[in-house]
Design a protein around this nucleic acid. Structure first.
Lengths: 235, 235
DNA sequence: CGCAACAGTTATAGTCTCTAACACAAGCGA
DNA sequence: TCGCTTGTGTTAGAGACTATAACTGTTGCG
Protein backbone atom coordinates (compact mmCIF):
# COMPACT_ATOMS: atom_id res chain seq x y z
CA UNK A 1 0.00 0.00 0.00
CA UNK A 2 2.95 2.30 0.61
CA UNK A 3 6.23 2.57 -1.16
CA UNK A 4 9.04 0.75 0.60
CA UNK A 5 10.41 3.00 3.36
CA UNK A 6 13.91 2.76 4.89
CA UNK A 7 13.36 -0.90 5.63
CA UNK A 8 15.11 -1.38 8.92
CA UNK A 9 14.04 -4.55 10.75
CA UNK A 10 12.11 -2.57 13.27
CA UNK A 11 10.31 -0.14 11.02
CA UNK A 12 9.29 -3.11 8.97
CA UNK A 13 7.57 -4.72 11.89
CA UNK A 14 6.04 -1.38 12.70
CA UNK A 15 4.61 -1.01 9.24
CA UNK A 16 3.25 -4.50 9.32
CA UNK A 17 1.50 -3.92 12.62
CA UNK A 18 0.07 -0.67 11.31
CA UNK A 19 -1.35 -2.57 8.39
CA UNK A 20 -2.83 -5.26 10.59
CA UNK A 21 -4.50 -2.56 12.63
CA UNK A 22 -5.89 -0.98 9.50
CA UNK A 23 -7.19 -4.32 8.29
CA UNK A 24 -8.97 -4.96 11.56
CA UNK A 25 -10.32 -1.43 11.48
CA UNK A 26 -11.71 -1.92 7.99
CA UNK A 27 -13.34 -5.14 9.10
CA UNK A 28 -15.05 -3.35 11.96
CA UNK A 29 -15.94 -0.47 9.72
CA UNK A 30 -17.65 -2.84 7.33
CA UNK A 31 -20.10 -4.13 9.87
CA UNK A 32 -20.41 -1.41 12.46
CA UNK A 33 -19.84 1.79 10.53
CA UNK A 34 -17.50 4.60 11.46
CA UNK A 35 -19.23 5.16 14.78
CA UNK A 36 -18.68 1.54 15.76
CA UNK A 37 -14.96 1.65 15.26
CA UNK A 38 -13.35 1.31 18.68
CA UNK A 39 -9.62 1.17 19.26
CA UNK A 40 -10.03 -1.08 22.25
CA UNK A 41 -11.96 -3.64 20.21
CA UNK A 42 -9.37 -3.59 17.46
CA UNK A 43 -6.67 -4.15 20.05
CA UNK A 44 -8.53 -7.09 21.50
CA UNK A 45 -8.92 -8.55 18.03
CA UNK A 46 -5.18 -8.34 17.54
CA UNK A 47 -4.42 -9.80 20.94
CA UNK A 48 -2.95 -6.63 22.34
CA UNK A 49 -4.39 -4.61 25.12
CA UNK A 50 -5.87 -1.18 24.67
CA UNK A 51 -3.30 1.56 24.81
CA UNK A 52 -0.78 -0.39 22.76
CA UNK A 53 -2.44 0.90 19.62
CA UNK A 54 -1.41 4.42 20.52
CA UNK A 55 2.12 3.43 19.60
CA UNK A 56 0.92 3.15 16.04
CA UNK A 57 -1.78 5.77 15.70
CA UNK A 58 -1.87 8.95 17.71
CA UNK A 59 -5.63 8.83 18.10
CA UNK A 60 -8.79 7.34 16.75
CA UNK A 61 -9.05 10.22 14.31
CA UNK A 62 -5.52 9.57 13.18
CA UNK A 63 -6.42 5.99 12.35
CA UNK A 64 -9.54 7.08 10.54
CA UNK A 65 -7.49 9.64 8.67
CA UNK A 66 -5.09 6.95 7.54
CA UNK A 67 -7.99 4.84 6.33
CA UNK A 68 -9.39 7.80 4.42
CA UNK A 69 -6.06 8.52 2.80
CA UNK A 70 -5.70 4.86 1.82
CA UNK A 71 -9.18 4.82 0.34
CA UNK A 72 -8.48 7.95 -1.68
CA UNK A 73 -5.27 6.50 -2.93
CA UNK A 74 -6.97 3.27 -3.79
CA UNK A 75 -9.75 4.80 -5.83
CA UNK A 76 -7.30 7.11 -7.54
CA UNK A 77 -5.23 4.10 -8.51
CA UNK A 78 -8.28 2.31 -9.86
CA UNK A 79 -9.21 5.29 -11.99
CA UNK A 80 -5.75 5.97 -13.33
CA UNK A 81 -5.53 2.32 -14.34
CA UNK A 82 -8.52 2.63 -16.64
CA UNK A 83 -7.73 2.15 -20.31
CA UNK A 84 -8.50 5.40 -22.09
CA UNK A 85 -7.45 4.36 -25.56
CA UNK A 86 -11.00 3.84 -26.85
CA UNK A 87 -13.32 6.63 -27.86
CA UNK A 88 -13.68 9.42 -25.30
CA UNK A 89 -17.27 8.45 -24.70
CA UNK A 90 -16.37 4.82 -24.12
CA UNK A 91 -13.56 5.89 -21.83
CA UNK A 92 -15.93 8.04 -19.83
CA UNK A 93 -18.31 5.13 -19.41
CA UNK A 94 -15.42 2.98 -18.27
CA UNK A 95 -14.34 5.57 -15.74
CA UNK A 96 -17.86 5.92 -14.40
CA UNK A 97 -18.34 2.20 -14.08
CA UNK A 98 -14.94 1.83 -12.40
CA UNK A 99 -15.80 4.49 -9.88
CA UNK A 100 -19.16 2.95 -9.16
CA UNK A 101 -17.76 -0.57 -8.93
CA UNK A 102 -15.15 0.54 -6.44
CA UNK A 103 -17.83 2.17 -4.32
CA UNK A 104 -20.41 -0.61 -4.31
CA UNK A 105 -17.91 -3.35 -3.62
CA UNK A 106 -16.65 -1.57 -0.52
CA UNK A 107 -19.37 0.82 0.57
CA UNK A 108 -17.87 1.40 3.99
CA UNK A 109 -14.74 2.83 2.45
CA UNK A 110 -16.74 4.98 0.07
CA UNK A 111 -18.78 6.34 2.94
CA UNK A 112 -15.51 7.16 4.61
CA UNK A 113 -14.47 9.38 1.72
CA UNK A 114 -17.87 10.68 0.85
CA UNK A 115 -18.40 13.38 3.37
CA UNK A 116 -16.68 15.23 6.11
CA UNK A 117 -18.81 14.39 9.12
CA UNK A 118 -16.72 16.46 11.50
CA UNK A 119 -16.81 20.24 10.99
CA UNK A 120 -13.38 20.82 12.46
CA UNK A 121 -11.78 18.28 10.16
CA UNK A 122 -9.27 19.53 7.63
CA UNK A 123 -8.15 17.20 4.92
CA UNK A 124 -4.43 16.41 4.87
CA UNK A 125 -2.53 17.79 1.87
CA UNK A 126 -2.21 14.27 0.51
CA UNK A 127 -5.95 14.25 -0.01
CA UNK A 128 -5.77 17.08 -2.52
CA UNK A 129 -3.06 15.17 -4.32
CA UNK A 130 -5.15 12.04 -4.51
CA UNK A 131 -8.24 13.94 -5.55
CA UNK A 132 -6.27 15.35 -8.42
CA UNK A 133 -4.93 11.95 -9.33
CA UNK A 134 -8.47 10.59 -9.41
CA UNK A 135 -9.69 13.46 -11.54
CA UNK A 136 -6.82 13.26 -14.00
CA UNK A 137 -8.27 10.64 -16.34
CA UNK A 138 -11.45 12.66 -16.64
CA UNK A 139 -9.41 15.63 -17.80
CA UNK A 140 -7.92 13.55 -20.56
CA UNK A 141 -11.32 12.32 -21.66
CA UNK A 142 -12.88 15.74 -21.85
CA UNK A 143 -9.89 17.47 -23.40
CA UNK A 144 -11.08 16.63 -26.89
CA UNK A 145 -14.61 17.80 -26.25
CA UNK A 146 -16.54 20.42 -28.18
CA UNK A 147 -18.87 21.68 -25.46
CA UNK A 148 -22.43 22.85 -25.99
CA UNK A 149 -23.63 26.26 -24.76
CA UNK A 150 -25.09 25.29 -21.37
CA UNK A 151 -21.66 24.41 -19.98
CA UNK A 152 -20.15 27.67 -21.21
CA UNK A 153 -20.26 29.48 -17.86
CA UNK A 154 -18.65 26.55 -16.09
CA UNK A 155 -15.85 26.46 -18.62
CA UNK A 156 -15.27 30.18 -18.20
CA UNK A 157 -14.98 29.80 -14.44
CA UNK A 158 -12.69 26.83 -14.71
CA UNK A 159 -10.51 28.59 -17.22
CA UNK A 160 -10.11 31.58 -14.95
CA UNK A 161 -9.31 29.23 -12.11
CA UNK A 162 -6.51 27.68 -14.15
CA UNK A 163 -5.27 31.16 -15.02
CA UNK A 164 -5.10 32.21 -11.40
CA UNK A 165 -3.69 29.00 -10.01
CA UNK A 166 -0.45 27.93 -11.65
CA UNK A 167 -0.16 24.49 -10.00
CA UNK A 168 -3.64 23.65 -11.20
CA UNK A 169 -2.76 24.76 -14.72
CA UNK A 170 0.32 22.56 -14.66
CA UNK A 171 -1.66 19.62 -13.35
CA UNK A 172 -4.27 20.00 -16.06
CA UNK A 173 -1.68 20.46 -18.76
CA UNK A 174 -0.15 17.17 -17.73
CA UNK A 175 -3.31 15.39 -18.84
CA UNK A 176 -3.86 17.20 -22.12
CA UNK A 177 -2.36 16.36 -25.50
CA UNK A 178 -1.45 20.02 -26.02
CA UNK A 179 -1.17 22.80 -23.48
CA UNK A 180 -4.07 24.99 -24.52
CA UNK A 181 -5.93 27.27 -22.14
CA UNK A 182 -9.28 26.76 -23.81
CA UNK A 183 -8.90 23.00 -23.69
CA UNK A 184 -7.90 23.27 -20.04
CA UNK A 185 -11.14 25.03 -19.21
CA UNK A 186 -13.17 22.46 -21.09
CA UNK A 187 -11.34 19.57 -19.50
CA UNK A 188 -11.74 20.97 -16.01
CA UNK A 189 -15.41 21.67 -16.52
CA UNK A 190 -16.06 18.20 -17.81
CA UNK A 191 -14.09 16.56 -15.05
CA UNK A 192 -15.77 18.49 -12.27
CA UNK A 193 -19.23 17.94 -13.74
CA UNK A 194 -18.55 14.25 -14.16
CA UNK A 195 -17.23 14.00 -10.64
CA UNK A 196 -20.30 15.73 -9.22
CA UNK A 197 -22.70 13.52 -11.15
CA UNK A 198 -20.84 10.38 -10.25
CA UNK A 199 -20.73 11.31 -6.64
CA UNK A 200 -24.42 12.06 -6.55
CA UNK A 201 -25.58 8.83 -8.09
CA UNK A 202 -23.07 6.57 -6.42
CA UNK A 203 -23.48 8.10 -3.01
CA UNK A 204 -27.25 7.72 -3.16
CA UNK A 205 -26.86 4.12 -4.23
CA UNK A 206 -24.33 3.32 -1.54
CA UNK A 207 -26.49 4.96 1.10
CA UNK A 208 -29.29 2.67 0.04
CA UNK A 209 -31.57 5.49 -1.02
CA UNK A 210 -32.46 3.79 -4.29
CA UNK A 211 -33.76 0.67 -2.59
CA UNK A 212 -37.28 -0.14 -3.61
CA UNK A 213 -36.87 1.57 -6.96
CA UNK A 214 -35.82 -1.41 -9.07
CA UNK A 215 -32.05 -1.10 -8.57
CA UNK A 216 -31.58 1.36 -11.35
CA UNK A 217 -28.24 2.79 -10.35
CA UNK A 218 -26.30 1.40 -13.28
CA UNK A 219 -28.87 2.51 -15.82
CA UNK A 220 -29.03 5.90 -14.19
CA UNK A 221 -25.31 6.29 -14.33
CA UNK A 222 -25.12 5.25 -17.96
CA UNK A 223 -27.78 7.77 -18.92
CA UNK A 224 -26.12 10.56 -16.99
CA UNK A 225 -22.78 9.77 -18.50
CA UNK A 226 -24.25 9.84 -21.99
CA UNK A 227 -25.90 13.15 -21.33
CA UNK A 228 -22.63 14.60 -20.18
CA UNK A 229 -20.82 13.13 -23.16
CA UNK A 230 -23.42 14.71 -25.42
CA UNK A 231 -23.04 18.04 -23.70
CA UNK A 232 -19.32 17.96 -24.42
CA UNK A 233 -19.71 16.57 -27.91
CA UNK A 234 -17.66 13.49 -27.15
CA UNK A 235 -17.64 11.05 -30.02
CA UNK B 1 -43.10 22.19 13.46
CA UNK B 2 -45.84 19.70 14.23
CA UNK B 3 -49.56 19.94 13.87
CA UNK B 4 -51.30 20.73 17.14
CA UNK B 5 -51.70 17.47 19.08
CA UNK B 6 -54.31 16.81 21.82
CA UNK B 7 -53.21 19.91 23.68
CA UNK B 8 -53.52 18.91 27.30
CA UNK B 9 -51.57 21.17 29.64
CA UNK B 10 -48.98 18.52 30.22
CA UNK B 11 -48.40 17.28 26.71
CA UNK B 12 -48.00 20.89 25.71
CA UNK B 13 -45.14 21.36 28.12
CA UNK B 14 -43.73 18.08 26.95
CA UNK B 15 -43.75 19.17 23.34
CA UNK B 16 -42.14 22.46 24.24
CA UNK B 17 -39.33 20.75 26.12
CA UNK B 18 -38.79 18.37 23.24
CA UNK B 19 -38.42 21.35 20.95
CA UNK B 20 -35.97 23.07 23.27
CA UNK B 21 -33.91 19.91 23.32
CA UNK B 22 -33.95 19.76 19.55
CA UNK B 23 -32.91 23.38 19.33
CA UNK B 24 -29.97 22.82 21.63
CA UNK B 25 -29.07 19.69 19.71
CA UNK B 26 -29.06 21.58 16.43
CA UNK B 27 -26.84 24.23 17.97
CA UNK B 28 -24.34 21.59 19.05
CA UNK B 29 -24.62 19.88 15.72
CA UNK B 30 -23.73 23.11 13.97
CA UNK B 31 -20.40 23.46 15.65
CA UNK B 32 -19.39 19.96 16.66
CA UNK B 33 -20.94 17.73 14.04
CA UNK B 34 -23.00 14.63 14.64
CA UNK B 35 -20.21 12.95 16.55
CA UNK B 36 -20.00 15.86 18.97
CA UNK B 37 -23.63 15.72 19.93
CA UNK B 38 -23.79 14.59 23.55
CA UNK B 39 -27.00 14.26 25.50
CA UNK B 40 -25.29 15.19 28.72
CA UNK B 41 -24.07 18.46 27.26
CA UNK B 42 -27.48 19.31 25.91
CA UNK B 43 -28.95 18.65 29.32
CA UNK B 44 -26.43 20.91 30.97
CA UNK B 45 -27.22 23.63 28.46
CA UNK B 46 -30.89 23.37 29.37
CA UNK B 47 -30.19 23.36 33.10
CA UNK B 48 -31.31 19.81 33.61
CA UNK B 49 -29.10 16.97 34.61
CA UNK B 50 -28.23 14.10 32.36
CA UNK B 51 -30.78 11.33 32.41
CA UNK B 52 -33.72 13.73 32.43
CA UNK B 53 -33.49 13.88 28.64
CA UNK B 54 -34.42 10.23 28.45
CA UNK B 55 -37.94 11.21 29.40
CA UNK B 56 -38.15 12.96 26.06
CA UNK B 57 -36.02 10.86 23.75
CA UNK B 58 -35.49 7.17 24.20
CA UNK B 59 -31.87 7.36 23.13
CA UNK B 60 -29.29 9.46 21.37
CA UNK B 61 -30.25 7.79 18.10
CA UNK B 62 -33.86 8.59 18.74
CA UNK B 63 -33.02 12.26 19.07
CA UNK B 64 -30.92 12.17 15.95
CA UNK B 65 -33.75 10.40 14.18
CA UNK B 66 -36.15 13.15 15.18
CA UNK B 67 -33.74 15.76 13.84
CA UNK B 68 -33.43 13.86 10.58
CA UNK B 69 -37.17 13.59 10.23
CA UNK B 70 -37.54 17.30 10.92
CA UNK B 71 -34.91 18.16 8.37
CA UNK B 72 -36.56 16.00 5.74
CA UNK B 73 -39.89 17.57 6.45
CA UNK B 74 -38.37 21.00 6.31
CA UNK B 75 -36.69 20.58 2.95
CA UNK B 76 -39.80 18.91 1.56
CA UNK B 77 -41.82 21.90 2.68
CA UNK B 78 -39.38 24.29 1.06
CA UNK B 79 -39.56 22.43 -2.23
CA UNK B 80 -43.32 22.05 -2.30
CA UNK B 81 -43.61 25.78 -1.67
CA UNK B 82 -41.74 26.59 -4.88
CA UNK B 83 -43.82 28.37 -7.48
CA UNK B 84 -44.05 26.12 -10.52
CA UNK B 85 -46.25 28.35 -12.66
CA UNK B 86 -43.43 29.57 -14.89
CA UNK B 87 -41.87 27.55 -17.68
CA UNK B 88 -40.80 24.03 -16.70
CA UNK B 89 -37.18 24.99 -17.19
CA UNK B 90 -37.50 28.03 -14.97
CA UNK B 91 -39.33 25.96 -12.39
CA UNK B 92 -36.55 23.39 -12.42
CA UNK B 93 -33.96 26.10 -11.85
CA UNK B 94 -36.03 27.41 -8.97
CA UNK B 95 -36.27 23.97 -7.43
CA UNK B 96 -32.54 23.42 -7.77
CA UNK B 97 -31.68 26.76 -6.25
CA UNK B 98 -34.15 26.21 -3.41
CA UNK B 99 -32.62 22.86 -2.63
CA UNK B 100 -29.13 24.26 -2.71
CA UNK B 101 -30.03 27.29 -0.64
CA UNK B 102 -31.58 25.12 2.01
CA UNK B 103 -28.45 23.01 2.18
CA UNK B 104 -25.85 25.75 2.27
CA UNK B 105 -27.66 27.83 4.86
CA UNK B 106 -27.81 24.88 7.25
CA UNK B 107 -25.08 22.49 6.24
CA UNK B 108 -25.21 20.51 9.45
CA UNK B 109 -28.81 19.58 8.80
CA UNK B 110 -28.04 18.65 5.23
CA UNK B 111 -25.20 16.43 6.33
CA UNK B 112 -27.67 14.79 8.68
CA UNK B 113 -29.90 13.81 5.78
CA UNK B 114 -27.21 13.18 3.26
CA UNK B 115 -25.98 9.76 4.14
CA UNK B 116 -26.67 6.89 6.43
CA UNK B 117 -23.45 6.66 8.38
CA UNK B 118 -24.63 3.73 10.49
CA UNK B 119 -25.07 0.42 8.65
CA UNK B 120 -27.73 -0.87 10.99
CA UNK B 121 -29.86 2.22 10.63
CA UNK B 122 -33.24 1.84 8.98
CA UNK B 123 -35.12 4.92 7.97
CA UNK B 124 -38.51 5.39 9.61
CA UNK B 125 -41.49 5.10 7.25
CA UNK B 126 -42.03 8.85 7.56
CA UNK B 127 -38.78 9.36 5.72
CA UNK B 128 -40.12 7.70 2.59
CA UNK B 129 -43.15 9.94 2.80
CA UNK B 130 -41.04 13.05 3.06
CA UNK B 131 -38.72 11.93 0.30
CA UNK B 132 -41.74 11.58 -1.94
CA UNK B 133 -43.06 14.95 -0.91
CA UNK B 134 -39.71 16.49 -1.78
CA UNK B 135 -39.62 14.76 -5.14
CA UNK B 136 -43.18 15.66 -6.04
CA UNK B 137 -42.50 19.08 -7.57
CA UNK B 138 -39.84 17.57 -9.80
CA UNK B 139 -42.40 15.13 -11.14
CA UNK B 140 -44.65 17.98 -12.12
CA UNK B 141 -41.84 19.80 -13.86
CA UNK B 142 -40.74 16.84 -15.92
CA UNK B 143 -44.22 15.61 -16.77
CA UNK B 144 -44.36 17.83 -19.82
CA UNK B 145 -40.97 16.75 -21.07
CA UNK B 146 -40.14 15.22 -24.44
CA UNK B 147 -37.07 13.24 -23.50
CA UNK B 148 -34.07 12.61 -25.74
CA UNK B 149 -32.75 9.10 -26.46
CA UNK B 150 -30.06 8.81 -23.75
CA UNK B 151 -32.63 8.83 -20.98
CA UNK B 152 -34.75 6.18 -22.67
CA UNK B 153 -33.52 3.23 -20.59
CA UNK B 154 -34.09 5.13 -17.38
CA UNK B 155 -37.62 5.96 -18.41
CA UNK B 156 -38.29 2.35 -19.26
CA UNK B 157 -37.12 1.24 -15.84
CA UNK B 158 -39.09 3.88 -14.05
CA UNK B 159 -42.18 3.05 -16.01
CA UNK B 160 -41.95 -0.59 -15.10
CA UNK B 161 -41.42 0.43 -11.50
CA UNK B 162 -44.64 2.41 -11.57
CA UNK B 163 -46.41 -0.53 -13.17
CA UNK B 164 -45.26 -2.91 -10.45
CA UNK B 165 -45.80 -0.59 -7.52
CA UNK B 166 -49.32 0.76 -7.29
CA UNK B 167 -48.70 3.28 -4.47
CA UNK B 168 -45.89 4.78 -6.48
CA UNK B 169 -48.09 5.03 -9.53
CA UNK B 170 -50.73 6.80 -7.47
CA UNK B 171 -48.19 9.15 -5.99
CA UNK B 172 -46.83 10.04 -9.41
CA UNK B 173 -50.29 10.45 -10.89
CA UNK B 174 -51.05 12.99 -8.19
CA UNK B 175 -48.38 15.26 -9.62
CA UNK B 176 -49.27 14.90 -13.29
CA UNK B 177 -51.84 16.85 -15.26
CA UNK B 178 -53.19 13.62 -16.77
CA UNK B 179 -52.72 10.06 -15.57
CA UNK B 180 -50.61 8.66 -18.38
CA UNK B 181 -48.18 5.81 -17.95
CA UNK B 182 -45.66 7.16 -20.44
CA UNK B 183 -45.68 10.53 -18.75
CA UNK B 184 -45.26 8.84 -15.41
CA UNK B 185 -42.07 7.14 -16.59
CA UNK B 186 -40.71 10.37 -17.97
CA UNK B 187 -41.58 12.29 -14.81
CA UNK B 188 -40.00 9.70 -12.55
CA UNK B 189 -36.87 9.52 -14.64
CA UNK B 190 -36.48 13.28 -14.65
CA UNK B 191 -37.12 13.57 -10.94
CA UNK B 192 -34.67 10.86 -9.98
CA UNK B 193 -32.00 12.18 -12.31
CA UNK B 194 -32.49 15.68 -11.00
CA UNK B 195 -32.36 14.46 -7.45
CA UNK B 196 -29.11 12.58 -8.07
CA UNK B 197 -27.45 15.53 -9.75
CA UNK B 198 -28.58 17.95 -7.10
CA UNK B 199 -27.40 15.70 -4.36
CA UNK B 200 -24.01 15.27 -5.97
CA UNK B 201 -23.26 18.92 -6.48
CA UNK B 202 -24.78 20.17 -3.25
CA UNK B 203 -23.22 17.48 -1.14
CA UNK B 204 -19.78 18.18 -2.53
CA UNK B 205 -20.26 21.87 -1.91
CA UNK B 206 -21.51 21.37 1.62
CA UNK B 207 -18.65 19.03 2.41
CA UNK B 208 -16.29 21.76 1.33
CA UNK B 209 -14.81 19.75 -1.51
CA UNK B 210 -15.09 22.63 -3.95
CA UNK B 211 -13.02 24.97 -1.84
CA UNK B 212 -10.09 26.38 -3.69
CA UNK B 213 -11.87 26.10 -7.01
CA UNK B 214 -13.40 29.54 -7.26
CA UNK B 215 -16.70 28.74 -5.53
CA UNK B 216 -18.38 27.50 -8.64
CA UNK B 217 -21.20 25.54 -7.07
CA UNK B 218 -23.98 27.81 -8.27
CA UNK B 219 -22.67 27.96 -11.82
CA UNK B 220 -22.17 24.22 -11.81
CA UNK B 221 -25.69 23.63 -10.66
CA UNK B 222 -27.14 25.96 -13.25
CA UNK B 223 -25.27 24.21 -16.02
CA UNK B 224 -26.28 20.78 -14.84
CA UNK B 225 -29.88 21.82 -14.56
CA UNK B 226 -29.84 23.21 -18.07
CA UNK B 227 -28.33 20.02 -19.40
CA UNK B 228 -31.04 18.00 -17.75
CA UNK B 229 -33.71 20.36 -19.02
CA UNK B 230 -32.29 19.97 -22.52
CA UNK B 231 -32.25 16.21 -22.19
CA UNK B 232 -35.94 16.27 -21.38
CA UNK B 233 -36.79 18.92 -23.92
CA UNK B 234 -38.16 21.31 -21.33
CA UNK B 235 -39.05 24.64 -22.82
C1' DC C 1 28.26 -5.40 25.15
C1' DG C 2 25.70 -1.71 26.67
C1' DC C 3 22.29 1.53 26.17
C1' DA C 4 18.84 4.12 23.77
C1' DA C 5 14.73 3.60 21.42
C1' DC C 6 10.79 0.97 21.11
C1' DA C 7 6.82 -2.29 22.15
C1' DG C 8 4.01 -3.56 25.30
C1' DT C 9 1.86 -3.71 30.04
C1' DT C 10 -1.43 -2.06 34.02
C1' DA C 11 -3.62 1.76 36.35
C1' DT C 12 -6.35 5.58 35.96
C1' DA C 13 -8.71 9.94 34.71
C1' DG C 14 -12.39 11.58 32.18
C1' DT C 15 -16.38 11.48 28.94
C1' DC C 16 -20.45 9.57 27.49
C1' DT C 17 -24.78 6.51 27.16
C1' DC C 18 -28.16 4.47 29.48
C1' DT C 19 -30.58 2.01 33.64
C1' DA C 20 -32.20 1.89 38.38
C1' DA C 21 -34.15 3.63 42.29
C1' DC C 22 -36.15 7.18 44.30
C1' DA C 23 -38.49 12.08 45.28
C1' DC C 24 -41.62 15.37 44.15
C1' DA C 25 -45.37 17.78 41.67
C1' DA C 26 -49.39 18.14 38.84
C1' DG C 27 -53.59 16.99 37.12
C1' DC C 28 -57.68 13.94 37.24
C1' DG C 29 -61.75 11.61 39.14
C1' DA C 30 -64.66 10.61 43.15
C1' DT D 1 -61.16 18.51 48.70
C1' DC D 2 -58.61 14.34 48.83
C1' DG D 3 -55.96 10.80 47.06
C1' DC D 4 -53.98 8.36 43.46
C1' DT D 5 -51.97 7.89 39.08
C1' DT D 6 -48.95 9.71 35.91
C1' DG D 7 -45.25 12.31 34.65
C1' DT D 8 -40.93 14.96 35.58
C1' DG D 9 -36.95 15.33 37.63
C1' DT D 10 -33.07 13.88 40.78
C1' DT D 11 -28.67 11.11 42.19
C1' DA D 12 -26.05 6.72 41.93
C1' DG D 13 -23.82 3.75 39.16
C1' DA D 14 -22.68 0.22 35.54
C1' DG D 15 -20.39 -0.27 31.31
C1' DA D 16 -17.96 1.29 27.01
C1' DC D 17 -14.59 3.99 25.21
C1' DT D 18 -10.59 7.46 24.50
C1' DA D 19 -6.45 8.85 26.04
C1' DT D 20 -2.45 9.60 29.35
C1' DA D 21 0.96 8.13 32.79
C1' DA D 22 4.16 5.30 34.69
C1' DC D 23 6.55 1.39 34.28
C1' DT D 24 8.72 -3.16 32.38
C1' DG D 25 10.84 -5.93 29.16
C1' DT D 26 13.12 -6.39 24.55
C1' DT D 27 15.67 -5.39 20.48
C1' DG D 28 19.04 -4.00 17.59
C1' DC D 29 22.47 -0.32 16.63
C1' DG D 30 26.97 1.70 17.51
Amino acid sequence: MDAVPPTSPRSRYREQTRNEIKQAALRQLADSGASGLALVKIAKELGMSGPALYRYFASRDDLLGALITDAYEDIATALTAVDLTGSPRAALHLLAETYRAWAVTQPHRYLLIEGTPVPGYTAPPQTLEHARAALGPFLTVFATGRPTPPVGPVIAEMRSWAERDAPVAAWVAGHLPAADLAAAGTALAGAVLAWSQLHGTVSLEVSGQYTGMGHSAATLLTAQTDLLADAFGLH
